[in-house]
Simulated assay, not measured.
Amino acid sequence: MKQNSKNTIDWQDFEKVELRVGTIIDVQDFPEARKPAYKLRVDFGKGIGVKKSSAQITDLYSKKDLLGKQVVAVVNFPVKQIGPFMSECLVTGFHRDDGAVVLATPDINLQNGARLA
């Protein structure tokens, strides 16, 4: 069987990645970023709370489009400094051939904090 990925992982590795659903509650421009980006605040519910993220998604999404949108994010990476901003989670997406990012989103609304199983 041919593998499509360079690296394989086992189930225990996958279980370490905490992919959770959250709702974007605030979107701000991020003019200090090297590439066009937004500063997001994402609500992951009671257990996790609100986390900040920087996302290079300005090609396909306006601030209005993003407000209230549910996204899938990694919530257990260490905090990362991006210019003057501290990113607390990684909002996930897929790169198109033209470089634009399409967000990974649930197709039905879920409770904030729901974990990818």
Results as ranks from 00 to 15, higher is better:
1 M>R: 03
109 N>D: 06
39 K>V: 08
87 S>F: 02
86 M>Q: 03
29 D>K: 12
50 V>K: 15
101 V>S: 07
49 G>F: 14
109 N>T: 03
48 I>E: 11
106 P>G: 03
26 D>E: 14
8 T>A: 04
48 I>H: 11
94 F>V: 04
79 V>Y: 01
33 A>V: 01
15 E>L: 15
107 D>L: 15
104 A>E: 05
93 G>I: 08
48 I>T: 14
75 V>Q: 02
17 V>Q: 11
55 A>T: 10
42 V>M: 14
58 T>K: 10
53 S>F: 05
97 D>P: 05
2 K>E: 10
45 G>V: 15
53 S>D: 14
82 I>Q: 12
39 K>L: 08
65 D>Y: 11
78 P>F: 07
8 T>R: 12
45 G>C: 11
88 E>G: 03
22 G>I: 01
36 P>D: 10
29 D>M: 04
108 I>H: 05
42 V>R: 02
58 T>G: 02
98 D>N: 09
68 G>T: 07
24 I>Q: 01
51 K>F: 07
4 N>K: 09
26 D>Y: 09
95 H>V: 02
98 D>W: 00
7 N>P: 12
86 M>Y: 02
9 I>V: 10
110 L>K: 06
115 R>Q: 12
41 R>H: 10
43 D>C: 06
94 F>R: 02
75 V>K: 00
21 V>M: 02
3 Q>E: 11
87 S>H: 01
61 Y>R: 11
25 I>S: 04
114 A>S: 13
75 V>W: 03
26 D>K: 10
76 N>Q: 04
23 T>Q: 13
108 I>E: 09
113 G>I: 06
14 F>L: 11
68 G>L: 08
62 S>P: 12
24 I>Y: 00
39 K>T: 06
109 N>C: 09
111 Q>H: 02
102 V>Y: 02
78 P>S: 09
112 N>F: 00
1 M>T: 06
27 V>E: 12
97 D>F: 04
24 I>E: 00
79 V>A: 06
20 R>A: 09
20 R>I: 01
19 L>G: 04
95 H>Y: 05
67 L>W: 00
17 V>P: 13
35 K>P: 10
83 G>C: 07
38 Y>E: 15
18 E>A: 13
66 L>R: 05
38 Y>D: 13
39 K>P: 10
52 K>D: 14
64 K>P: 11
96 R>C: 03
75 V>T: 14
25 I>D: 06
62 S>K: 13
81 Q>M: 05
40 L>I: 11
37 A>W: 12
46 K>Y: 06
108 I>P: 04
77 F>C: 05
89 C>M: 01
98 D>F: 00
113 G>S: 05
57 I>N: 00
88 E>L: 03
13 D>H: 12
50 V>M: 08
35 K>I: 10
68 G>N: 06
81 Q>N: 10
36 P>L: 07
114 A>T: 06
51 K>R: 12
89 C>A: 04
95 H>C: 06
81 Q>H: 04
116 L>F: 11
99 G>V: 01
55 A>Q: 15
2 K>P: 15
102 V>S: 07
96 R>A: 08
54 S>H: 14
72 V>C: 14
21 V>N: 00
15 E>I: 15
93 G>P: 05
99 G>Q: 10
64 K>R: 09
69 K>W: 05
